[in-house]
Computed example of a mutant assay.
Amino acid sequence: MSRKNKVQLVDRVARAAEAALAAKSFVSAIDILVGIGWLDPGALERWRRGQVDCLEGAVQANLSRVSEAMRLFRSWATAKGLFASPTDYVARTPRRQTLRFSRSGNAAIEAAYRTQWVSPELSEKKRERLAEKASRAPELVVVQPLNREWQCHRCGGGGDLLMMEDPGPACLRCVGLDDLEYLPSGDALLTRRAKAKSARYAVVVHFSRTRGRYERQGLLVEPRALADAQ
């Protein structure tokens, strides 16, 4: 890397890190890769859903550039006196498998990617709550499809709801969520109670053509949890 390009990368990493830190009081490797434009949010979401083998495979830069950016990020965080906070990253799938960052799977590289850097201005209790929240498994998401003629890539079946997987849509029976009961949005208190009582739940969304985005429609929760909440 030429000196000019290195200086430019230093500035880009610093700007991305400062922006994330100001917004969230912590900053991660993902924030840097998205902030400098090397990681598309859509590709990031596919990785979170377990549809991409490793995050480096979705980054639009060669590994030497990525390694340099990560080194500059760690140097920036250390110089700022940020606290290192190891964080778990699990997939937004029923299996909750651990997500992989690097092509090599090297333990040291994975640990570096998983480390979030937290503002020293936060109290110890706030840092602990932030670490707990960051390591929490993401919500499962199922979709009300626009096309009712879709087919499950595993069994060939269909249904009113699906979960997206790497090969294609999958029915709730195949992903092990067919025993859950649908609770539509509308009663915020009931939704909170049912969600808190349900060991397993999934958010139901539907794509709005007018707004051009997915919108929450309700929850899938365990029948016993819904009955108790009611």
Results as ranks from 00 to 15, higher is better:
Cys171Lys: 08
Pro169Asn: 07
Leu177Asp: 07
Pro138Glu: 08
Leu140Trp: 00
Ser123Trp: 00
Ala111Trp: 09
Arg127Cys: 02
Ala111Tyr: 10
Glu132Asp: 14
Leu172Val: 11
Leu122Glu: 06
Val118Ser: 04
Pro169Leu: 05
Thr115Val: 12
Ala112Asn: 13
Val175Ala: 03
Glu165Trp: 06
Val175Glu: 06
Trp150Ala: 10
His153Gln: 11
Gly157Ser: 09
Glu165Asn: 02
Val118Ala: 13
His153Ile: 13
Val118Asn: 04
Pro120Leu: 12
Gly176Cys: 11
Ala137Gln: 09
Glu124Asp: 15
Pro167Ser: 12
Leu161Asn: 07
Arg127Gly: 02
Gln144Asp: 05
Ala131Trp: 00
Arg127Lys: 14
Trp117Ala: 01
Cys152Met: 11
Arg148Ala: 15
Val118Glu: 03
Val141Tyr: 00
Gly157Leu: 05
Pro138Asp: 10
Trp150Asp: 05
Tyr113Phe: 15
Pro167Cys: 14
Asp160Cys: 08
Arg136Ser: 14
Cys174Tyr: 10
Leu130Ala: 01
His153Tyr: 08
Ala134Gln: 05
Gln116Asp: 15
Ala134Tyr: 01
Lys133Trp: 04
Ala134Met: 06
Cys155Leu: 13
Cys152Asp: 08
Ala134Gly: 06
Thr115His: 04
Pro138Met: 10
Gln116Leu: 11
Arg114Phe: 05
Cys174Trp: 07
Leu161His: 07
Leu130Gln: 06
Ser123Leu: 05
Pro120Gln: 11
Val142Leu: 08
Met163Ile: 14
Asp160Gly: 15
Pro167Trp: 11
Asp160Trp: 15
Thr115Ser: 07
Gly159Trp: 03
Trp117Leu: 02
Trp150Val: 09
Arg173Phe: 02
Glu149Pro: 00
Ser123Glu: 11
Gly176Phe: 03
Leu146His: 11
Gly156Met: 12
Leu172His: 08
Ala137Asp: 13
Val175Thr: 09
Leu122Gln: 10
Cys152Pro: 09
Pro169Ala: 08
Ala112Pro: 01
Leu162Trp: 05
Glu124Ser: 14
Leu162Arg: 10
Leu122Ala: 10
Arg154Gln: 12
Ser135Arg: 05
Glu149Trp: 02
Gly158Gln: 10
Leu161Asp: 09
Trp117Lys: 01
Leu161Cys: 10
Leu146Ser: 15
Glu124Val: 13
Leu140Ala: 05
Leu146Gln: 15
His153Ser: 06
Leu140Cys: 05
Ala131Phe: 01
Glu132His: 09
Trp117Cys: 01
Leu161Lys: 04
Gln116Trp: 04
Gly168Tyr: 11
Pro167Leu: 14
Trp117Arg: 00
Pro167Met: 13
Ala112Leu: 15
Pro145Tyr: 05
Gln116Lys: 13
Ser123Lys: 03
Ala131Cys: 02
Glu139Leu: 11
Trp150Lys: 08
Val118Tyr: 07
Gly157Asn: 11
Arg127Leu: 03
Leu146Glu: 15
Tyr113Gly: 00
Trp150Gln: 08
Arg154Lys: 12
Gln151Val: 13
Ala134Cys: 07
Gly168Ile: 10
Arg173Gly: 13
Val141Asn: 00
Cys152Ser: 10
Lys125Leu: 14
Lys133Tyr: 01
Tyr113His: 09
Leu161Trp: 12
Pro120Asn: 13
Gln151Ser: 13
Met163Trp: 02
Pro145Gln: 06
Val141Ile: 15
Val142Trp: 03
Lys125His: 11
Cys155Ser: 14
Ala111His: 09
Ser135Tyr: 03
